[in-house]
Nucleic acid binder design. Structure first.
Length: 722
DNA sequence: GAGCACTGC
């Protein structure tokens, strides 16, 4: 009766929910220690993974259910094994493809090459991957494809039914990235009882179930697998009770999968981690983190320590305190290393080097070690209980970085980092009572903390007209939504009916950048400076190209002057780009000029992708040579909403924004700092004790009305007449 | 005269 499930002998043992809708599989180990004769080492290793003993159950559930949720800790092998199980069972026959999404590029690459190795095939043939800038797949050959969720979202723009896939596995679903939430909202088309606050994964499941239900009329073979590290039992149960009451019972027709999701729990391979809490709340977590590390070093047997703090300043301070203690105090044998994304590649790699004999490694890290990087050899974790998060204020239109308490889910993830090689210990710098009673279960999803301009334009491009009524997994504020619509309207991307304009709106949606940058590129077409503006767009879309040279700030500033342009930072980028090309893209040249070589390489990659996109959109690639006026006009066409005027009698360089009359200042890292031209537009604001404009270019105010007559006519009557 | 959690197309 089943087409794909090929059970060798026994049917998996399943426990049915009382009301018959949901299947829970009880983890009864099947024989996994069968003889390894005749098998390769790789196959034996595969069989030792915890997920292997669920193979039959997983295939059975996927065969009979539109959606299967797999809850499992890291180390269970689900990411590498499940796609292979599916392929072995025939889900990739007849030219169909099994897809598996990941939130991060690095994970996509490493998982894909691991699976290719296990299957003994060449990466890019039977097993391939797609991330931005890299499509290592072959249309005729690739049967298992790994990709970032952002890439899947882009693919949906061309193929909303995702018709080439037989199974889509969404991995790491608990992370709730912006892309995941957009994807989920898109998939949820049928209004359904979602009145009570639901667990994320249940919601996610529901959305994907509905997607498959919709598509199943045409393609009854599409299956969805959601894999997540966390699930909350109570809201899950509540949800399914209300679902089963209303449903008519599972469908019994052959080959039609039941729509209620199946849930399977797979144990991980991590070791136990013992948790310790402080008895009294601590007032200074930095100091407490340092003293906790010292007492671990003093009292506990060997094993490396990972400390979670919030940001670069805290981390550098902690590193210094511990290093001093290690060199001058009684604490010998500590090797203290910082870890955050702003470090150079070489410094980041230090934390992966083996710990020297007789030493104990202490890594002081931001959240980067919570999910993005995995350190081996960690036995002790010290968790400050805080992290930095981005918050967007739609009223002021400013994004801020704020130190906030972490969620229980994060706390568990951090603790788990201690149990990878043997049983570990986690020291939480907060009380148990706080953890139990006050800490929220999960963090605030990214969609509720972000500027929505990009999200809204993606929805519009996918034909969702009513974005205000759009049903998100977690709704963003209406202020944020309205702000995004206003910005897109002022850019000429949306018309009076809030529909994408043609061709401009569709073109902006096609370019994978912030819409203001995309608009700037479109404007460069008429102005004849697309080559220069595309270069600027690439530089604006990566993090700083300058090295943060601690202790050498003065040298950095002096070096920058070699490239500084009177027009501003955007033109300065063009000078850096020229210099880099003249050096034959030399890493040494970068080093001598305080420029981050890897950032430069990335900028060049983005630039190449943008040139291809521009050509596809019919933008002529043209250089304006040395005419920087047209370049500045193009920047103004995208960023007119960020126009600022120097206050007439300001002695300290105070500007006011044209739109809201907010006080802003040019950031000291800008080449226009202390130059203070009368009119400028900025790329972004950073908010500390003051609002600082980053990446600033001087403009002529008459260009503003030229670029956005509507904006300056209606939003701010006569702003230029002062 | 000063500061940047982390992803992604």
């Amino acid at each position: 009766m089943s087409r794909f499930w090929k059970p060798g002998a026994e049917k998996p043992r399943l426990l049915e929910d009382e009301e018959g809708g949901v299947l829970f599989f009880s983890a009864s180990p099947l024989s996994s220690s069968s003889s390894g004769y005749g098998r390769t080492n790789i196959e034996m290793l595969r069989q030792r993974l915890p997920v292997y003993k669920y193979r039959t159950a997983i295939l059975y559930l996927v065969e009979t259910h539109a959606t299967t949720i797999i809850v499992g800790e890291t180390g269970s092998g689900k990411t590498t094994q499940i796609p292979q199980f599916l392929k072995e069972a025939g889900w990739a026959d007849e030219g169909r493809v099994i897809a598996c999404t990941q939130p991060r590029r690095l994970a996509v690459q490493s998982v894909a090459s691991r699976v290719a190795e296990e299957m003994d095939v060449k990466l890019g043939e039977e097993v391939g991957y797609t991330i931005r800038f890299e499509d290592i797949t072959n249309n005729d050959l690739t049967r298992i494809k790994f990709l970032t969720d952002g890439v899947l979202l882009r693919e949906m723009m061309d193929d909303p039914l995702l018709s080439k896939y037989s199974v889509i596995m969404v991995d790491e679903a608990h992370e709730r990235s912006l892309s995941t939430d957009i994807l989920l909202g898109l998939l949820k088309k049928v209004p359904i009882l979602l009145d009570n606050a639901l667990n994320t994964i249940v919601y996610l499941t529901l959305c994907l179930t509905m997607l498959s239900t919709q598509i199943q009329r045409r393609r009854p073979d599409l299956r969805l697998i959601i894999s997540s590290a966390t699930i909350e039992a109570r809201s899950m149960a509540d949800f399914f009770v209300s679902r089963t009451r209303r449903s008519q019972g599972p469908e019994k027709e052959e080959n039609i999968p039941v729509t209620e999701p199946a849930i399977l729990s797979v144990e991980g391979r991590g070791f136990n981690v013992e948790i310790f809490y402080v008895e009294e709340p601590v007032s200074d977590y930095l100091q407490k983190a340092v003293s906790t590390v010292l007492s671990i070093h003093d009292q506990e047997p060997g094993g490396d320590i990972l400390v979670f703090l919030t940001g670069q300043d805290d981390i550098d301070a902690a590193v210094q305190l511990l290093t001093e203690e290690s060199q001058h105090g009684r604490q010998k044998g500590l090797m203290v290393l910082p870890l955050y994304s702003g470090l150079s590649r070489a410094d980041q790699e230090l934390v992966f080097s083996p710990t020297p004999r007789g030493k104990r490694k202490v890594v002081i890290s931001t959240n980067i070690a919570e999910t993005s990087l995995t350190l081996e050899g960690i036995v002790y974790v010290v968790d400050s209980g805080f992290s930095k998060q981005r918050f967007y204020n739609p009223i002021s239109d400013i994004e801020n970085l704020v130190i906030v308490p972490i969620s229980k889910a994060s706390a568990r993830q951090r603790a788990g980092r201690a149990g990878r090689i043997r049983p570990g210990k986690c020291y939480r710098l907060y009380t148990e009572e706080y953890f139990l009673k006050e800490m929220s279960a999960v963090g605030i999803p990214e969609i509720q903390r972000s500027n929505l301009v990009s999200a809204v334009i993606q929805l519009k491009a996918l034909g969702i007209d009513n974005v205000l009524g759009f049903d998100w997994p977690a709704s963003p504020s209406s202020e944020a939504m309205i702000r995004a619509l206003e910005v897109l309207y002022s850019l000429g991307v949306l018309d009076d009916d809030a529909k994408l304009t043609s061709p401009e709106g569709f073109q902006v949606a096609e370019i994978p950048l912030d819409p203001m940058i995309s608009k700037m590129i479109l404007a460069s077409n008429q102005l004849g400076c697309s080559e220069e503006v595309i270069t600027i767009a690439a530089f604006l879309s990566i993090q700083s190209i300058w090295y943060t040279a601690k202790g050498a700030e003065k040298e950095l500033d002096e070096t920058k002057l070699r490239f500084a342009a009177a027009e501003g930072d955007h033109v300065t980028f063009l000078n850096v780009y020229k210099g880099f090309l003249q050096s034959n893209k030399s890493s040494k040249w970068c080093h001598n000029n305080f420029i981050n070589y890897h950032a430069m390489k990335k900028a060049l990659e983005v630039r190449e992708q943008l040139r291809r996109t521009a050509q596809r959109l019919g933008i002529a690639l043209k250089s304006c040579d040395d005419d920087m006026q047209v370049v500045r006009k193009a920047v103004t066409a995208g960023f007119f909403a960020n126009a600022c005027r120097l206050e007439a009698y300001s002695h300290n360089g105070m500007y006011k924004t044209v739109r809201t009359s907010q006080e802003v200042y040019i950031h000291p890292s800008s080449v226009l700092f202390r130059v203070n031209p009368k009119w400028v537009v900025y790329n972004s604001l950073v908010s500390t004790d003051r609002q600082y404009m980053r990446n600033v270019i001087s403009i002529d105010p008459s260009w503003l009305r030229e670029a956005a007559p509507h904006f300056y006519q209606y939003q701010q009557p006569n702003p230029l007449a002062r």
